[in-house]
Structures are given as C-alpha cells and as structure tokens.
Amino acid sequence: MISRWTVVVDRDDLTETEVLHDELGPASDLSDCEVLLRVSRVGLTANNVTYGVIGDAIGYWNFFPAGGDGQGVIPVWGFADVVDSTVDALPSGTRVYGYLPMASHFVARARLTSSGFVDTAEHRAELPGVYNSYLVTSQDPAYDASLEDLQVLYRPLFLTSFLLADRLADNSFYGARTVVVSSASSKTAFGTAQCLRGQGVRLVGLTSPRNVEFTAGLGLYDTVLPYGADVDAEPSAYLDFSGSAEVRSALHDRLGPDLVKDISIGLTHQAASQDGRSEFFFAPDQLRKRTADWGADGLAQRFGEAWRGFTAQASSWVAIANHSGPDELVEVWQAVLAGKANPDTADVISF
C-alpha cells in the first residue's frame, strides 16, 4: 500500500484548504495501460489561481476530481516519476513533465505518443488535449535537468505567452500601434512582452506602484506605469492579465475608440470577468490553429527557439524560493491568493 496526500480547496472559497490522506493499492491493482506517478516538483503562480477562479467555466476542476462535495483539486505543472506501470514503454523511474494535481500521487491511463503519452482516463476525454499530454524527459529536446525549476515555473506560462503574442502578430495587432499589458510584473505578462519585443509595437506595462521598479528593470517594456496613470491615446490593444474591472473601465474611458482590442488572459484579481468588451484568450485554440498551420514539428521548433531565448534571461529576473511538502504547499497557495507573492521571487515545491 502507498500513502497518498491531496490538497483540496473549497471551490466557492479558495482560501479554505484541507490536506486529505488515503491509501493506494499495490501495483497489481493497476488496470491495463495505467501508470502510477509520484509527483516530484511543481511550480505555483497566479496562473494556478486562474484555474480555480474559472474552474467551472473551462472545466479545470474535472482534471483531478475531488471526493468531497464542493471541493476541488487545483492543477499545477511540474515533474513526476513513474513508480508502477502496466506499460512496458513507461517503466518505473521514467520522468515526465505535464499537468499534475496538488497531490503526492495519481494514476494515469496512458496512450503512447512519439514524445510521451496522453492520459485517456474517461473523466478527461472531453478536456483540452494540451493538458492531457505528458512529455517523457528523455524524449523532450527542450529538457535540461539543470533548468527544471525554470521549466515548472515558466514553461506552461510561456506557452501561453508565446501563443498570445503569436495571436496578436497573426492578426496584425488588430491595427494597434501600442500593446498595453496589465499585471505587467506577472510571469505570463512579461513572457508575452519578451515575445513581442522587436515586432514593431510599443509595449506599455501597467502594474502596482510597488512593482514599478522591478517591472521596469526587466527591460521588456518601453514604458512602465503605475495603475491610474494616463496612457497615451493612440490605437492600442489591451492584454488584461489582472481581471480588474476598475483598470479595464479606466482604460476604456481614457482611450475610447482608440482601444481597438481588449483581451482577457489571467485573473490575478480573482474575479471572472463578464465584461462584454473583452474577449477571453484560450491558449489551446491558438495551439490547434498553429499545429494545423505549421505542423507539430514546426510548432515545436518555433516554440523551442522562443523558449531558449526566454530561459537565457529568466534566471536573472527572478530568484527561486524552494519549499517542500503539503504544508508548505498550502502556505505558498495562501500567499499567492492573498497577493503577497513578490514578483522578484518564484515558488517551487518539492513533494
């Protein structure tokens, strides 16, 4: 028997957490094509808060179902190791990267792919494929064991950044000459800014007064302003990583018809936007489009080039704060929820 723990949250109040303990049966209990994975290392950022805030709308609660009524498991990105398997190609010790629960273990039903496997568990069948795919590190050309901390923190966020920047460029920036970015100190936001550098648009970052110095120091934005400052009136696209209705309304009032596009991406203010002026960006949609346009290999090549350019700089921007175990995981979760996480540090939890 294997002892497992799982961190669950109240789906209606994300501050309410509980660590549940149960027992997993022996390897003989695994069905055909199943593998038991032990979660090893994950990152925790404001992006994970978004999974909880819009968990019902997008289906994030369905990836790792919780047993209790009204409870849910927040997904995280990271590394896990196969500890038991009924799949010859995935023996014990195989290390994978992908979408994981806030838990010590989970069972996946594996269908092999050229780079790893897809979890084909029945409850995940209707969910976006990008979240069901797991990369075997020995088959991942982008994997570098010395950069695991950067990968668990940035790779899922940077994929969103890469696809969002591509979406803008693919649509000629909707006629905008300036791209305004809220929560500009957040990792997905400045990853997007890095992808947009040199593409002929002016980048304006909006952030809280306490984060202006850090954000300007990244060297990614042409201008960094505190919330409430005036933005120059010219054709602009707004990338909303904050979900703040106040910031959105102020920008619409200031720019009027010069605000040619308003796109919502993250929800660092923890309120799902219902504002009809904003279009929600769902990264898997652009991923499917570019897979069709470029093919899987072409997409992987383009993303790999962008990722290498990003990681070459990212280690100098943010210090890694290391944590371990479920109790420290809960502490980090509460800090991120409360907005107490510092932009110049990033949290990695080992299990």
Rank of each mutant, 00 (worst) to 15 (best):
H105D: 13
G198M: 04
A57E: 15
V9L: 11
T94G: 03
T50W: 07
V332N: 01
A271V: 15
Q270E: 14
N171M: 01
Y143T: 03
L337V: 01
A193K: 01
Q270N: 03
A292S: 12
V82M: 02
L239M: 06
N48A: 02
I54E: 14
F117Y: 07
Q334Y: 08
D88Y: 08
T15S: 15
G129P: 06
D344S: 04
S92Y: 05
G266S: 01
L337M: 05
D232L: 12
V201C: 07
Y238I: 00
V181M: 08
V19I: 14
A27P: 08
V118M: 07
A250H: 10
Q274V: 10
E23K: 01
K340C: 12
M1G: 12
S183Y: 09
L196P: 03
D240W: 07
A306Y: 09
G93F: 09
L220R: 06
S183R: 02
L90Q: 04
G339R: 00
L259S: 05
T86W: 11
G70P: 06
G43F: 06
A272N: 12
V260R: 09
A338L: 01
W307F: 02
A306M: 09
Q313D: 15
V35S: 04
L287R: 07
D253H: 08
M1D: 13
T207D: 12
D88R: 02
S40G: 11
V318D: 12
A306N: 11
D166P: 01
G191D: 14
Q313H: 15
V8F: 04
R155A: 08
E305V: 05
A271Q: 15
T50K: 07
S278P: 03
S186M: 04
V348C: 07
S114A: 15
P128R: 01
L159F: 08
G295C: 02
A165D: 09
S278I: 07
A250V: 04
R290P: 03
T223I: 11
G219T: 00
F241H: 02
T207N: 09
W317H: 06
V8A: 06
A341H: 08
L153D: 06
R11D: 13
V73G: 09
V83D: 10
R254K: 09
L163S: 02
N62S: 15
L30S: 04
G256F: 07
G98H: 02
R124N: 13
